[in-house]
Simulated scan of single mutants.
Amino acid sequence: MKKLLFVLVLALAGYLYLEHTYRDGTASAPASTAQASAEPGAADSDSRIAEAFARHESNVQVSGRGVAARLLADDTSGSRHQKFILRLPSGQTLLVAHNIDLAPRIASLREGDTVEFSGEYEWSEKGGVLHWTHKDPKGAHAAGWLKHQGQIYQ
């Protein structure tokens, strides 16, 4: 019961933050955020990620949609990863670590763009990390993907 209450409070806080931010004129609501929350399943996947975050869970297969809030420099140590932060409809952020040694880079990605995703969630105190957004060359892990402007990257 306490866990459910915590998840509900987290979701409400995210909603209130977004409502305040967009109402006071400091930001404009991306059209894609409204679309994402209105589509069937979007709220369910967003709540599953919020639940995994609240419970400090990792190795959770998730899918959903978010808006690119910040583009980061590539991680070039070891396997190369394109990195960016998505803001989910709940307001939670998610760091995406997309392996560009195994999947194509999203070269056209810009802040404010909508990205759909399927991959593995790993807990972090800042909201979580999404990885395995590609096919597993060994076929042992569920294949993930990213979708941007109608094109799938995996």
Rank of each mutant, 00 (worst) to 15 (best):
R70Q: 14
Y121F: 15
Q92M: 14
L86N: 04
V9M: 15
L4V: 10
E57T: 04
Y153R: 02
R80H: 13
E122F: 04
A97L: 05
G144L: 01
M1G: 13
Q61A: 11
Y22K: 00
S28M: 12
A11Q: 00
S124Q: 12
S58I: 03
P137C: 04
G139V: 07
L12K: 12
D44M: 03
R48G: 05
V60H: 01
A54G: 11
Q92T: 02
R87G: 01
A42L: 03
K3E: 15
K126I: 00
A31M: 10
H134S: 09
H20D: 10
S118W: 04
S108M: 07
E120W: 03
V7C: 12
I49F: 03
R48Y: 05
G144I: 06
H20A: 13
R110W: 03
G25M: 04
G112I: 08
G150W: 05
K2E: 15
H134T: 07
R48I: 12
V7R: 08
G14I: 12
K3A: 13
L4Q: 07
I85E: 14
E122G: 08
Q149M: 14
K135L: 08
V115M: 06
T76P: 09
I85A: 04
H141A: 09
G41P: 01
H56I: 00
E125V: 00
K138V: 04
H134Y: 06
S63F: 05
R48N: 08
K83G: 01
I85N: 04
S63G: 06
G144K: 00
D136Y: 11
R23G: 06
Q92H: 15
D75V: 05
H141I: 12
S58G: 11
